[in-house]
Design a protein around this nucleic acid. Structure first.
Lengths: 344, 344
DNA sequence: AAGCTTTGCGAAAACCTTTGCGGAAAACCT
DNA sequence: AGGTTTTCCGCAAAGGTTTTCGCAAAGCTT
């Protein structure tokens, strides 16, 4: 078992020519005679030569690697986005190195360091829910290392980013609930400092406003994005004196957790409480009742993020383009029309 | 904006010493005086020096990359396994490069080629459902390139592999159904040539046998692993003259598809038809009714696969160790006890 | 035929690191 | 003092590729 891959040198030795000749012949360089070129290419083909990417990388000072940091890798939301990134990256001959922050700021910082050590050429990141300062990303910006955010972004950094129009989505959900007879619409939100929480809150408030409903602070609860915490948040809502007649959750984990909890406490969906969430197609239809939800264009988000990445890697100077993707509200049974209730 | 990373040469120039001195000082080589060592290390620290992995790779002829090929990246099953692989890989200082075959044999072959071009040091693979010959993997074996299979394996190749005990699981499910009053137990299987289909079929037959039930070939249907095909397979079962009173599906997609279809046709679960599948924890509990299922130790499968990989990369000579992980049957409402029916 | 351009190829540097070897100076020995 | 060992560091090669430069031979011109 000798060496696994052959090099230009091997080919050169076998043909009794120099390495540079072989290199040029393989690129159809005009300096090399047609005869020689053909001979060399034939042998390269036969020996199954492929250039050594490490040597190329060393020469060009590029690793063709993109560091991708996500809060969690095991959910459809992120894995689908990763697929989108991966597709575009592959088209550009790049790899992605995926690291999960597990929603931990500390791990996120370490991830950045490690990926930097590995000489990734840049980053595509979705912030962890804990991340409330951005020194580790500021450093990247200062060193002009390409950085793109998606979904959860940091506006101040002036970095290109792609997000879904959560504000519009929450407004739509709120109005949809109202149009189906709900008056007390509750919202389970994520950590307050996250941009997605803030945007969606705005949409929620706008929606209430347009429906002529008053904002009741009891109806908006925050939770971290774990299933346990989401259940607690739901319980909190269900223990209110003046209970909600509709609940929507800021992501799929929360939506499902709320559904479990609501059913567990014996409320009927949607008769007693309407439900909606931000989820993916498949699982929305498989739960009972099928869940009204806004579906993120996840794959497309990944694609756009990767495209932004390559823009900023090519143009050198980073822009701070923001791409806002529309979100669709898909109405299913969990938010069907309520019968009018007698006014109290 | 100069260069982003500094090299030994930069440090050497700044201190007026040779590159080799710097290199050795950073490794506390005894040839270098304590004074010099300290001076160099201090500067390296200050300048934030980290060795260039490409140069190291070139020198050692290793890329520290593992090619991972999965049929699909967007399901919990695979993403969880990938997490497991990733963890072990990271502990060894390796990256994983993930490629999805999308259940296509053609794409799988291309993936192998591309990863090979990228000089991955070896492969961790779950076969696509279409893969019925193994020339592209045989080539790897011939060249002694480390290869590990998980879940869907090819026995003939004599390659280390890790799988879940699907045979035991299907037997348990079958017996569980029987003990809960089911007599006509149907099984929606995957493509026949896959090892997991074969193993699970054996378990199914053994289970029937131990329960004293006859095997009715109408009750075992095959489908490819898409949701559409799974629905068709379910319809097929439901159109039988002598209908099944229990169905289990070979993976989570099929199980959920069956559930949708059964409910759509108006059958009650579990009163009319009991249901079970191979699924993950979370989604089993969120559907209605909660689905009895066998849960794969996915994360652990990934870990074990990666461990096998490193064994075969270190030992040089590849073993053909097979690791069989136990699977747990978790009983939920979808297979609750049936009332005894009058004997026909 | 002498001087010119063109053609076709090789040498060497560059990218960065490790490491065996050699070599100069210092320290030791008798 | 002369010889030997030790201490400390530099040279150079290796790993694979691209690319600038240079050089020889062949073709051309007049």
């Amino acid at each position: 078992m000798g060496k696994r891959h052959i090099s230009l040198k091997d080919l050169a030795k076998e043909l009794g020519v120099s390495i540079s000749t072989v290199s040029r012949a393989l690129k159809n360089h005009p300096d090399i005679s047609p005869d020689m070129t053909e001979k060399i290419q034939a042998l390269a083909e036969e020996r199954n030569y492929t250039p050594n990417p490490l040597a190329m990388g060393l020469l060009r000072q590029q690793t063709k690697m993109i560091g991708v940091i996500v809060p969690d890798i095991n959910t459809h939301f992120y894995s689908s986005i990763i697929s989108g990134i991966e597709k575009v990256a592959e088209d550009h001959g790049y790899f992605i190195v995926i690291t999960s922050s597990n929603e931990s700021k500390k791990k996120e910082i370490i991830a950045v360091q490690n990926l930097l050590k590995s000489r990734v050429e840049g980053f595509i990141v979705c912030l962890s829910q804990e991340t409330d300062d951005f020194a580790h990303f500021q450093k990247l910006v200062n060193n002009e290392i390409p950085l793109v955010f998606f979904d959860r972004v940091c506006e101040e950094l002036g970095v290109p980013s792609v997000l879904a129009n959560g504000q519009d989505a929450t407004k739509k959900i709120t109005k949809h609930f109202f149009e189906n007879g709900c008056k007390r619409i509750a919202y389970i939100s994520g950590p307050e400092h996250l941009n997605i929480s803030q945007n969606r809150k705005v949409g929620y408030l706008n929606g209430l406003n347009e429906c002529g409903l008053e904002y009741d602070e009891n109806l908006m609860v925050h939770c971290n994005l774990s299933i346990e915490d989401a259940k607690l948040a739901t319980q909190e809502l269900l223990q209110l004196e003046n209970k909600p007649d509709a609940i929507f959750g800021v992501n799929d984990t929360i939506a499902f957790a709320a559904m479990i909890e609501v059913k567990k406490q014996g409320y009927k969906i949607p008769e007693d409480i309407s439900l909606a969430g931000f989820t993916d197609e498949f699982h929305s239809t498989v739960v009972d009742p099928p869940l009204t939800s806004v579906s993120h264009p996840t794959f497309q988000m990944g694609e756009e993020a990767a495209k932004l990445f390559f823009e900023s890697i090519e143009k050198g100077k980073s822009n701070n383009k923001r791409i806002m993707l529309p979100i669709d509200l898909v109405v299913r049974e969990s938010s069907a029309k309520k019968k009018a209730k007698p006014f109290i």
